[in-house]
Amino acid sequence: MTKAEIVEQIYERVGFSKKEAAELVEKVFDVIKETLARGEKVKISGFGNFVVRHKNARKGRNPQTGQEILLEARKVLTFKPSLVLKNVLNEETPDPSSQTPQE
C-alpha cells in the first residue's frame, strides 16, 4: 500500500475528491514528521505510538574487519504497535491450542 492507495481508499469509503484526499494525506504525514522532528511522541490510539529515543554512544565493531569503532550518540524512532492492532492481526487465526496472544 502506498500513499496513492490510501487516497484511493478515502475516495472509495467517504467519497472525498481525490485532490482533497491527497492533500489531507500529505498534511497528515507532514504533521507527524514535524512533531517527531521536534522530539515529541505521536500517539495514535488503535494504531500505535511513535516515540523518539535517545541512544547513548557506544563502542561497536566493523563486522567485516573486526575493527573497533565509536558509534556516536543518536536519536532513533521506535514504533510500538497498539494492543488493538496486535490483536486485530491475530484475530482470524483461531488455533484451538492457543489462548489470547500474550504480552
Partner: peptide
C-alpha cells in the same frame, strides 16, 4: 503460539529528521 506482529522501519528522511531533533 505463533503470532503476527507489525514492524515499522523508519524512512531515510524521517530518520535524519529525528536524529537532529532537540532533547
Amino acid at each position: 503460539s505463533a503470532k503476527r506482529t507489525p514492524f515499522f522501519k523508519v524512512g531515510k528522511e524521517l530518520k535524519e529528521m529525528v536524529d537532529r531533533s532537540p532533547d
